[in-house]
Write a protein that binds this DNA or RNA. Structure first.
Lengths: 235, 235
DNA sequence: TTGCAATTCAGTGTATACACTGTATGCTCA
DNA sequence: TGAGCATACAGTGTATACACTGAATTGCAA
């Protein structure tokens, strides 16, 4: 996708996309045009255009009231997106293996090695960049676009996996193996690794979700609301 | 995707998307904001927003000069998209088989039967609607979004297949088989049919492309330009 | 006639201004 | 006190207006 190149210029969409992907803007958070415009030092017009772009990409959702919010995904949707990601990524493997030059392989290896002992936040960023690079290498523009879109949608949710579960170590091990597979020109191995990569992260996220379900107070939203209401009435 | 629902209201994007998908606006054709605005009876602002939406969907491309055009795909890209379509569609099969009620099956059958002897243009429209319906039934929103996006991109190119090659008959036969598979709750069969469906169309398109390459006058564009120039000079 | 410069023009990018909608606030009246 | 109504406000949707850019066109000089 390469962001601004394909869709049109305004970097505003890029800034917002980044902020959403990195979790600086949380899912469900309202995106007020005037506020964004002011913060960015532009009028509402380019902001609106950015919001429409992001809405088409799925990371922003317009509600019935016309207001835009950061897209909020259900666990089922996140799960679905992980499946989609695995499917599309795996299919790109032959292209990657075919197109990667020795130089590319060396750069990938350097990239992966530089990730070995990073804090979760930085690692997540590098991880994102690494996968985009793989997409690029595949030479399949539309597969790459699709995968990038999916990645942007998942990111705010998958960071949890890294931070909480120290998934990072396992993922790194797989990254190293991927580089080996590419160097060995073994497309099937790479595809398998990519599939497994997603599958494991997906499992981890599911476990985390159910764990959280059990641990955290159940029926959080409605019960909390009820409690708040009761408190207000009581006060 | 359900078009306007997800992205935000302006029906302008829907109108343009339809026009592009149906080939009323040809690939490569410039989309002049003022012209569209005037034709639609609105100002340029909502037109711009629509263009940004469509650019993010891929059906419109902004050039370096800032101008928007109907996206033009290379044969390789079309081929890639057919592969992607097959991949995503097949993965939706289990969902379709699981969710389709008896009523859904009956409606699908009616839909397919009503397509049996239609002119290519109408058939293409129904075909599009039919596949969207399958996506909807799968219950997989993001797979459905992705597949719809791909469909929108391919449509202007795949119509050729139907019109020129009488592919329609084969496709119809497969549609009937798909309904049977759904009724029999055979997800694997449905997945196979969907894969084959795309695969055959893709093959037909490839053959058509190479055929055209051989048949049509080579270097069409430059030669036509040369002829036009010659004619002008002669007059 | 040809080459070049100045000018016009077509088209886009964005700011400002105004209209509309839903919601919250506060006021009145029973 | 509480229900109902009017007003104010926050936010969005869109039209108009102006600035900018690159390309075509014209006019001029050699």
């Amino acid at each position: 996708m390469e962001a601004s190149t394909a869709t049109g210029r305004p970097p505003i969409a890029d800034v917002l996309r980044e902020a959403i992907r990195q979790g600086l803007l949380e899912p469900g958070q309202p995106l007020i045009q005037t506020a964004i415009a002011e913060a960015m030092g532009v009028s509402r017009i380019p902001v609106r255009e950015a919001l429409y772009t992001l809405a088409a990409e799925g990371v922003v959702t317009f509600g019935d009231d016309g207001g835009a919010r950061v897209t909020s995904l259900s666990p089922a949707e996140v799960d679905e997106l992980w499946t989609l990601r695995a499917l599309v990524e795996a299919e790109m493997a032959p292209g990657v293996v075919r197109n990667a030059t020795e130089r590319d392989v060396a750069e990938l290896r350097a990239l992966v090695e530089a990730m070995d002992d990073l804090d979760p936040a930085t690692w997540s960023e590098r991880n994102y960049a690494l996968h985009l690079e793989l997409y690029r290498l595949s030479g399949l523009r539309h597969f790459a676009d699709t995968a990038e879109r999916v990645l942007n949608l998942i990111e705010p949710y998958s960071r949890v996996v890294v931070t909480v579960l120290h998934e990072q170590t396992e993922a790194q091990a797989e990254h190293h193996q991927m580089v080996e597979a590419i160097e060995a020109r073994d497309a099937d191995a790479l595809a398998g690794l990519l599939r497994h990569h997603s599958h494991r992260a997906r499992q981890a996220l599911l476990e985390y979700a159910t764990e959280r379900e059990r641990t955290a107070e159940p029926r959080e939203t409605t019960q909390a609301a009820a409690r708040a209401l009761a408190q207000r009435l009581g006060a």
